[in-house]
Design a protein around this nucleic acid. Structure first.
Lengths: 338, 338
DNA sequence: AACGTTCGGGCGAACGTTCGCATTGGATAA
DNA sequence: TTATCCAATGCGAACGTTCGCCCGAACGTT
């Protein structure tokens, strides 16, 4: 392999190594023939700059930290995976790279890992996902003035860069769709209280009812952890309601919950899409292959990744930032489950 | 933030900065009180070593390169995602980190990216996944003596470190299961020719037939790209066979193909699990929620990641390597589709 | 003829580490 | 008393960059 240094190039070209450096950066007044000679040697011995040295000198790493979401067992998070992928691509285009790491204690906000990585000059800033109100990571990063940008919102009065998908609007679209289909008794299965994004989706649910002229008293929210079995249990409770109160449509806060709901309906001997409508949220892969294919809300993860990276790099490089918060519109994907 | 240097610590502790360095590494003969004083200052001002400097000095980065699999649009690859996650965790335990990057031209083997990253001292070695026979990346890395380890095999006569899941054995288990269920006319839907791992799975299929005493002439392989619609088309062709030749069970080379097959069966008005058996491969998330839940083969991605990382680090650090190739056993997960 | 100006390039320093070797002072042994 | 030794620390150098400043020569201007 190459692994040559400036001095190797300089020796072969008969100049000082500093001159080589300048030529490579185009910021030297050198005779044209000297420059071409240097470039020739560079290609000949396949010189590549040593980034460790460059980083030490520059005091910047061009690396963006991103913590893996600690998933129990083999449960993955397709939305965040897509986001991560998009962020990686966007970063590469601006000559940055993603540095992924794992925190030990995800929910408690293992702030130590962030402190260490930044203190060690291992990254120039952080990308956060799956944020929540009062998020200790955000609080810490703001306090210590460490550059970062998030995919997800937190407290409204905190001043930082974020990108999020408008979950409220997404759910309003779902509701409008169901109402247009003639549904009047619509229930929701949401996450346990305390989730920021769950709260926005619930707002969309209530707004949807109101716009359809349905009394809030007619609304019902069941709650379940973000797992299919929990969703199934919540759905079973809804199906147990007396016939007059039983919903004809159920909007779910996530696809995983909706998958459980589908199962519960099948267990009850009913048919989703005919006897009852079910919708999900996130449009994770494969939900189009469920039976029936699941109506869902697709998140613009590609744009989200691009924006987050852009804002973070602007911050790192000290450029002014136009908008500190960006809300993206999701897209309703109607399938046979509703 | 901290971002203090050895000199800051030294000044506060009243010693030279080199002494601080030695104390931190425990390789100095210093008076106990000096040591405690230094440690106290270190904690006080929250000193963290600058890794760029350390890396420059050491000539090593403690970073392992891993190329994103270029997925078209939002199609993710759950098996590789799980592998990546596992590798990241394993690396972290040995004080290494993963450095992810994207190649422009995945299939052609954009070898330039590997050369550049290694030449620039950006990584100490590489992890490769989704390998194939004659893989240009592997050829390049061997030629240039760059440390690497792969998840997946290539040419048998190439000498390098790999870990793979025994696809042949996995498929043999599927076949044994189907034969035990009484199936005699079993077809396979595989990928187009040229895939290394597809080839192993086909071997398992043929072996399975043979062990059951079924003539090879009775076997059928249809081929499809790794997409649900392609799988559906292949399945439709099998269903079009005259009744006497039509298989009672179809083993699929992947879950994605199997999902398409499920759909094709449903379209034909038949019921999977009763009228015909279908099996997948990989056990990707959510296939347990399909209707019917899909029988599949689970890959030990956790172990695979750990082994790959271990072998790569041994190589980088110049330690001897016991086994250059490791074959892991997959696990059959029987569900209602078979 | 003396003096600025420009061109072409060298030189020293610094980023923060680590590591081998040198240098103290005090205690011990001869 | 003096040579000896060890413990406790300082010092210089190097990893490969980048950057500002300096310097000689050639040229043109008054």
């Amino acid at each position: 392999m190459s692994r040559a240094t400036l001095k190797d190039v300089a020796a072969r070209a008969g100049v000082s190594y500093q001159t080589v450096s300048k030529v490579l950066h185009g910021q030297a007044q050198v005779a044209p023939e000297t420059a071409t000679r240097i470039w020739q040697v560079v290609h000949e011995i396949n010189y590549e700059p040593n980034l460790s040295a460059r980083r030490l000198r520059a005091g910047a790493t061009h690396l963006l930290g991103y913590a893996w979401h600690h998933t129990p067992s083999n449960l993955v998070h397709p939305v965040l995976d897509a986001f991560l992928h998009s962020a990686a691509m966007a970063a590469a285009e601006q000559d940055y790279h993603l540095f992924t790491f794992a925190t030990h204690d995800d929910k408690a906000g293992d702030v130590g890992a962030y402190e260490e990585l930044y203190g060690r000059h291992q990254v120039d800033g952080f990308i956060l996902a799956d944020t929540n109100r009062g998020d200790p990571r955000i609080r810490f990063l703001i306090e210590h003035e460490i550059p970062f940008a998030t995919f997800g919102r937190a407290n409204d009065d905190w001043d930082f860069c974020w990108v999020d998908v408008d979950g409220q609007q997404g759910m309003e679209r779902v509701m409008a769709h169901l109402v247009a289909r003639g549904h009047r008794r619509i229930a929701m299965i949401s996450w346990p209280e305390g989730s920021q994004s769950g709260w926005y989706r619930e707002q969309g649910y209530w707004n949807g009812l109101q716009r359809a002229g349905i009394a809030a008293e007619a609304g019902t929210i069941e709650r379940a952890e973000n797992l299919a079995p929990a969703g199934a249990a919540a759905m079973a409770r809804l199906l147990d309601l007396p016939a007059a109160q039983r919903p004809t449509a159920v909007v779910c806060v996530s696809d995983l919950v909706a998958i459980g709901a589908l199962k519960a309906v099948a267990n009850a001997g009913l048919e989703v899409g005919r006897d009852i409508a079910i919708t999900g949220f996130d449009d994770i892969p494969l939900v189009e292959y469920l039976r029936p294919p699941l109506t869902s809300v697709r998140q613009p993860t590609l744009k989200a990744g691009q924006w987050v990276v852009k804002m973070l790099i602007q911050q790192i490089e000290g450029e002014p930032i136009a908008h500190k918060g960006i809300l993206l519109e999701p897209e309703l994907v109607v399938r046979q489950s509703s």
